[in-house]
Amino acid sequence: MKKVTVYTTTTCPYCVMLKNFLREQGIPFTEVNVQLDPAAARKLVATTGQIGVPQTKIDEQWVLGFDQETIMQL
């Protein structure tokens, strides 16, 4: 089983769509709300160089945005 972590904010509609998509596919995930966790937000930007959300980490690979195809491939 791959480890899936979704980085979100409270107000991001694509984050909601991504979480719903993962639930519909039966893919368990951990959510990190970077709006509520500034330390996680800084770490995310330092790691990926991206400030946008959603960002999804699948094992050690990153997917930027709500990219269903890439998520399912990984």
Results as ranks from 00 to 15, higher is better:
T56V: 05
A40W: 00
Q68A: 13
V6Q: 02
R23G: 09
F66H: 12
V53M: 12
V32E: 03
K19S: 07
L44K: 01
R23W: 05
K19P: 08
M17K: 15
T56H: 12
M72F: 08
F66D: 07
I51F: 15
T5S: 05
V34H: 00
A40H: 01
P54T: 06
V34F: 00
E31R: 10
R42C: 06
V63D: 06
T30L: 13
M72H: 05
N33A: 01
R42F: 13
Q73T: 15
D67L: 05
P28R: 07
F66G: 02
N33Y: 03
A39S: 06
Y14T: 00
K19T: 06
Q50F: 09
V6A: 04
L44T: 00
V45Y: 04
F29L: 07
N33Q: 01
T9N: 09
Q55V: 09
L22M: 08
A39M: 09
G65P: 02
E31G: 06
F29V: 02
C12F: 10
D67C: 07
V34Q: 01
Y7G: 00
F66I: 04
V4S: 02
N20L: 11
F29D: 02
E60A: 14
A39H: 11
V16W: 08
T10N: 08
T10C: 03
P13N: 09
F29W: 05
V34P: 01
V16R: 11
T48E: 02
F21H: 04
T48Q: 05
R42K: 15
M1D: 09
Q50D: 07
I58Q: 02
V16N: 09
E31I: 03
L18T: 13
Q25M: 13
K57V: 12
M1R: 15
T56Y: 06
V6S: 00
E60T: 11
M72C: 12
D37V: 02
I27M: 05
A40I: 01
C15F: 06
G49S: 07
T48L: 04
F66A: 09
Q55E: 14
P28W: 04
V16E: 13
M17D: 15
T5Q: 10
T9F: 06
K43F: 06
F66S: 04
G52R: 15
R23E: 12
N33H: 00
T70Q: 09
Q73C: 14
I58A: 07
T47H: 05
T56E: 10
Q68H: 11
V34I: 07
I71N: 06
N33R: 04
P54E: 08
I51V: 14
T56N: 10
A39V: 13
E69Q: 12
W62E: 02
T9A: 05
L64T: 14
F29H: 05
G26W: 01
T56C: 02
D67I: 07
V63I: 12
A46Y: 13
F21R: 00
W62Y: 07
E69F: 14
F66C: 11
G26Y: 01
Q25K: 14
V32Q: 02
T48S: 04
L64F: 12
Q73P: 03
I58E: 05
L36N: 13
E24D: 10
F66P: 03
Q68I: 10
E31S: 04
K43H: 12
P54Q: 09
D37M: 03
I51N: 11
G26E: 00
T56S: 07
F21L: 09
E31M: 05
Q35C: 01
